[in-house]
Design a protein around this nucleic acid. Structure first.
Length: 664
DNA sequence: GGAAGCGTACTTTTT
DNA sequence: GTACGCTTCC
């Protein structure tokens, strides 16, 4: 567990600005955790230290490692979290300073889309000509880059209306988690100086992925302290689409001329052959700091590339290889990763894994929180926490079915909009007076009354009793199971969907009973936590070993490592991605993506592509990726490249054979 | 006026 | 192939 001289330098240089260029697998996380450990050892109080990362996963991992190095109590007060979690914490204490109510709601992607769609209706913008997703992307890009250039007045208006609408609903979006805290700190120096007094030492992980907004937030949060250590690798910058600026890391020394620069170039993760292959690829990028990673881990195993006929073959070939490895018990499933450029590529692989009964996990993507039943339940929770949450109310107003159809809803919505009221206010008025909105039938009024009763009843139960108990009762009262069984015919899926609701209840219970929690363990706290955790899979059982084969996008794989890595879809249009090539034509970021993917592997790396691929259900021919020709042929085995179909028939036969083996 | 059934358009990457 | 929107049926 020793450190090499460069790592030691990075760990022990505590005062002043430090820039650590940490190549893939060069012990970056170890440097950060040891640095924190070192600071605590020399007597710096934990509460003075702030370490920020980009994902909950890596923040959690660092915390775990630190816990193994010292007693838990020593870590009390240490601010080790993500930018967004820190922002949420600041907003919880100070958001009223910006005129927002204390009980604000954090919108997820779906809510944002719904909001923009509403906006389009009001402003008579055709959502087909301007898809909400595009609009949101440009709003987000604008917030994150803090740029005002190239903005038409039309866009400017839309941007302002969007912010206004958020404000009116007392809601914020993900970018506001950084933007609003920054504003608070800028506009309220007294709050800023509280933080400056408290925190003195700062670290940022994955600095190459920092965008302008985060950088500026960091600046005001940090205050006059120059004890700032940033760790990153320009070759692993893969978030330009989110506004990350490679110049921030490349220009760090300009901002702080006294910066001490440390380079970590020895890779301790991968075999030398893998590193050689990765180096040969990344050298093709024009704008990078010239450097060469090296590894002294010996190996005879070359990188292997296979070209298969279509995406089904691609999946069955890889999975059959994996299956025989698993049968031989040479490697655990969770040490195998299948990496993809896009989420939709995973489907044939999932199918193949299912038919062979191999446990697998699709990391992130569309999972738990995107399931209808989970979203419905969360909408109910949001409605109970805040009845003026129009989006939540809209979702549950007629689910389970109450006979409130779209015409009635439109009538109510129209009234709400014309009088700038919340939908909930309209419901209240309907209950108060029979003369109000005559179009709404008496039968519906009855339903609305009982919904209002339901709301006040459960608001009491949630806030005055045990939350989880209230939730379970709520599911009963709503007859969710009945509603679900009307949608599904198979007993198995009904059970699975109810199980998901049960998981949500378990999460709530876990949250409620966690005594270490810094936030109040109430419904607001839970909902805030939920929206931050959206990307993690709550079904992971704590402490139990996860042996499932991992499927994930390259973006999600950053910072992780596996014994065996497969990178799939090495085709023009997929990697490099087709959309990227429409614009200015630079594929450097795509090349970095492949570089990141390749350097995840410790022992063995496989690359695959398909010759034809189905898109929207239609097959068409695709070209192999240009990146393949950039790889050093002496370390990559291309032997199965372009072999005709009979090879594939043999492979399919072998795959079937493996299937048989499993039966015995 | 509401629910079910059929036709159409779409997938880059994320906190 | 699927999610959503529009049309028809009850």
């Amino acid at each position: 567990m020793q450190l090499n001289p460069s790592q030691r330098l990075a760990v022990e240089t505590i005062e002043g600005p430090v820039l650590v260029f940490a190549g893939a697998g060069s012990g970056k996380t170890r440097v950060i955790t040891h640095r924190i450990f070192h600071m605590l050892q020399i007597g710096i109080p934990a509460s003075q230290i702030v370490a920020l990362s980009f994902t909950n996963k890596s923040a959690g991992e660092m915390r775990e490692r630190l816990k193994k190095m010292m007693p838990k109590e020593k870590l009390r007060g240490l601010e080790l979290s993500t930018f967004h979690a820190l922002g949420l914490k600041i907003l919880r204490s100070h958001i009223t300073k910006l005129g927002y109510g204390e009980k604000f709601v954090l919108l997820n992607a779906q809510d944002q889309e719904a909001l923009v769609l509403d906006l389009c209706k009001i402003k008579k913008i055709d959502p087909k000509a301007f898809p909400p997703k595009e609009i949101l992307r440009s709003i987000s890009f604008r917030k994150n880059t803090q740029s005002q250039t190239n903005v038409t007045s039309e866009q400017e208006n839309l941007f302002e209306d969007y912010q206004k609408e958020l404000r009116q609903r007392n809601s914020i979006d993900f970018d506001d988690l950084i933007l609003l805290p920054k504003r608070i700190l800028v506009e309220h120096p007294e709050i800023a100086s509280d933080y400056h007094y408290r925190h003195r030492y700062f670290m940022v992980d994955e600095f190459q992925d920092t965008n302008r907004l985060q950088y500026e937030f960091l600046k005001v949060f940090r205050g006059p302290s120059k004890n700032l250590c940033v760790v990153g690798d320009d070759d692993q910058s893969i978030y330009a689409f989110r506004g990350s600026e490679i110049d921030l890391i490349l220009g760090f020394e300009k901002e702080f001329p006294e910066t001490k620069v440390v380079r970590l170039l020895e890779n301790y993760r991968s075999t030398s052959l893998i590193i050689q292959a990765a180096n040969s690829l990344i050298q093709n990028n024009k704008t990078r700091r010239p450097k060469e990673l090296y590894s002294s881990i010996p190996s005879q195993e070359k990188v292997e590339y296979f070209e298969l006929s279509d995406e089904k073959e691609e999946a069955s070939f890889a999975i059959s290889q994996i299956q025989s490895l698993l049968i031989k018990n040479e490697v655990k499933g969770n040490e195998i990763a299948l990496l993809f450029r896009t989420n939709f590529q995973t489907r044939p692989f999932e199918e193949e894994l299912r038919t062979r009964n191999i446990p697998y996990k699709v990391v992130g993507g569309y999972q738990f929180f995107d399931r209808k039943e989970v979203r419905d339940c969360i909408a109910y929770l949001r409605f109970i926490a805040n009845p003026k949450d129009d989006l939540a109310l809209l979702r549950i107003l007629n689910y389970p079915k109450r006979g409130i159809g779209s015409t009635s809803i439109q009538t109510m919505l129209k009234f709400a909009r014309e009088n700038s009221l919340h939908l909930y206010d309209v419901l209240l008025r309907l209950a108060e007076s029979v003369d109000f909105l005559k179009e709404i039938k008496p039968k519906l009024r009855g339903e609305i009354n009982s919904l209002l009763d339901f709301h006040s009843d459960f608001q009491k139960r949630f806030f005055h009793g045990k939350m989880t108990l209230a939730f379970r009762e709520m599911i009963q009262v709503l007859q969710m199971e009945k509603a679900i069984s009307e949608e599904e015919s198979e007993e198995k899926t009904i059970k699975a969907r109810m199980y998901n609701i049960g998981e949500l209840a378990n999460m709530m219970n876990y949250f409620e009973e966690d005594l270490e929690m810094e936030v109040r363990p109430d419904l607001f706290g839970f909902l805030g936590r939920l929206s931050l955790l959206m990307e993690d899979d709550p079904r992971e059982e704590e402490g139990k070993e996860d042996r499932r084969v991992q499927l994930l996008t390259i973006h999600q794989s950053k910072g992780l490592e596996y014994d065996i890595v497969w990178v799939h879809g090495l085709e023009e249009g997929i990697l490099p991605n087709g959309r990227v090539m429409e614009g200015d034509g630079t594929v450097d970021e795509e090349r970095r993506l492949l570089y990141v993917a390749m350097t995840r592997s410790r022992r063995k790396l496989y690359l695959t592509s398909a010759r034809t691929r189905r898109r929207f259900g239609v097959s068409s021919e695709v070209e192999p990726s240009r990146f393949l020709s950039e790889l050093d042929r002496s370390v990559v085995d291309f032997s199965l490249w372009g072999k005709p179909a009979k090879e594939e028939a043999a492979l399919a036969f072998l795959a079937d054979l493996e299937k048989w083996k499993l039966c015995f």
